[in-house]
Every structure is written in C-alpha cells, then in structure tokens.
Simulated assay, not measured.
Amino acid sequence: MQSMLEIENLEHKYGVIKSLKGVSLKVNKGEVVALIGANGAGKTTLLRCVSGMLKPCGGNIILNGESIYGLPAPKVAAKGIAQVLESRHVFPKLTVLENIYMGAYCRKDVDTVKEEIERWFCTFPRLRERSSQLAGTLSGGEQQMLVIVRAMVSNPKLLILDEPSLGLAPIFIEEIFKIIPQLQQMGTTILLVEQNAQMALSVSTRGYAMETGCITLSGSSNELLNNDDVRKLYLGEA
C-alpha cells in the first residue's frame, strides 16, 4: 500500500523530560489507523509534532514522501493535514456556517465548497438546522460534528482526530464513530487518537498502543482487540 504518513524515531522534550522516545508509525493511504493509550501517554504531543504545533528534537515526519519535520503549523496545513483538536475548539462567536467556511479559507473553488457543505448538511442534519446559530451555544456532540465538517471542507489528504469521544454523551459517541467509516469510504485517510480503545479499534484498519512516550504494541485492529495486554490495560478486562 502507498504510504501517506511515516513517523520515524520521533523525539520530543519538555525541558529535560523526554515526552516522545523514538516513536515510529505508519499510516497508509485510505487507512484508518488508531493510536490508543492512557491519558499522559504522549499521544497529543505526537499529534502536535506532526501538525507543526510543537517542534520535535529528533527523527523525521514524512508526508507523501516529503519530509515535513519542523515545519510550522500553517505550512503543514497547506501540505494537506487537517487536525481536529481535543476538546473541539470552535469559534464560539461565529455561526455554524461561518465556522464551516473557516475550514475552506485557502480554497478558491467557492461553488464546489458550497456543494460540499450542502452534502455535509445532509450527513449532519443537526448542523443544517443550526446553521445560523452561534457555535458556542451548541452541545458538545454538535460541536464535534461541526469541527469534523470544518476540517473536511479543507479537502485534507490526512485527517487527524484527537480524542473525538472526549466529554460526549454515549449517543453522540456512537454517532461520531459511525461517520468515521463513511469518511474512509469517501477516500479520507485518518489517524485516530483515542482513549476509548474498543471504539477506536472497532473502526480502524490497524492500531498502535502508546505508553510513556513509546509505541509498545502494533498490529491489525483485530489482533490488538484480542491481545491479552490490550484487553487488560485498555478494555478493562481482568
């Protein structure tokens, strides 16, 4: 399979403390790859290094055969990476529709963007109903839908989802995780970072487990779901 993202022996430090210790993983084109791990394992730090929000101190990050190591966030975004941040981060004083258009600010094909937004409104009818409502007044689940759509209208090569289930009611978690396979069917490559290992591995192709800044396990999602260590550490089974 053609590689979309390759992370090679990535290192990062907060002061003298190593937060990433030689992390390597690969996401192939068209895959959904899950990265699971407890809070504090280093998952978000890794994503912020990929997206240019943090600067690593060793290793390499390759997107479609080109190194993006150390590039600032705007240049990484221009290369085709869209990240949906943990805790959503909508523009609260803009309407739902204005938030969505913010995702397309680099695009010139205005008519195509309008058509895409209409299709997303069909997928998420709640957003259509609330298109003129201020984003800050939406529920957590509705905001999560909004930031996913905002990321998708940027037409990304790689979509990174950071803890999409965080703080959501179960009904919204199910709804969000139903859309991930649909995004994959549309041709979107996804790196999914999630504490809810059961949900993440159920919608992904392959997975990695992360502890204290290191990748400790990797394999197909089915292999990880049936791994005794994963079942004990991440699925709550004795």
Rank of each mutant, 00 (worst) to 15 (best):
E98P: 02
T123C: 11
M186Y: 13
S132C: 02
M152W: 13
L54M: 13
S154A: 15
K26I: 15
N60L: 03
G213L: 01
V33D: 00
G167T: 13
I7K: 02
I171T: 11
L138E: 03
Q83A: 07
L46V: 01
E175Y: 08
E175C: 04
L97M: 07
T188L: 05
R126H: 07
N39H: 06
Q198R: 15
K43D: 08
N28M: 02
S221K: 09
G80M: 04
S218D: 12
R107F: 04
P56K: 01
W120C: 07
V27R: 03
L127P: 02
A82H: 10
L233K: 14
I180N: 04
S51D: 01
Q185G: 12
V149K: 06
L127H: 00
L20W: 15
G42R: 02
E237F: 10
Q185D: 15
S132T: 13
M210S: 07
G136Y: 08
C106M: 15
E174R: 15
V90L: 00
Q2Y: 10
A82F: 13
L201C: 08
V113Q: 03
S3G: 04
N60T: 07
G140Q: 07
V23D: 02
Q143L: 04
M210D: 00
D109W: 11
G22Y: 10
K232I: 08
L191P: 10
F124S: 12
E129V: 02
T123I: 14
Y105D: 08
L85S: 12
K75T: 08
V84I: 15
S132E: 14
K18R: 13
I179C: 09
H12L: 06
R231W: 10
V23C: 00
S165Q: 08
A209V: 15
G15L: 09
H89K: 12
T123W: 11
S19A: 15
L127G: 05
A73D: 07
T216K: 10
I100T: 01
D229Y: 13
R88I: 03
F172K: 03
D228K: 15
V149E: 07
K108Y: 02
G141D: 09
L127I: 05
E142V: 05
I215N: 03
K114W: 04
Y105P: 03
A200M: 05
L134Y: 13
V149H: 07
M1T: 09
Q2D: 13
Q184R: 15
L192A: 07
G52A: 06
A200F: 02
I36C: 09
L35T: 10
N9Y: 06
L71I: 00
E11T: 02
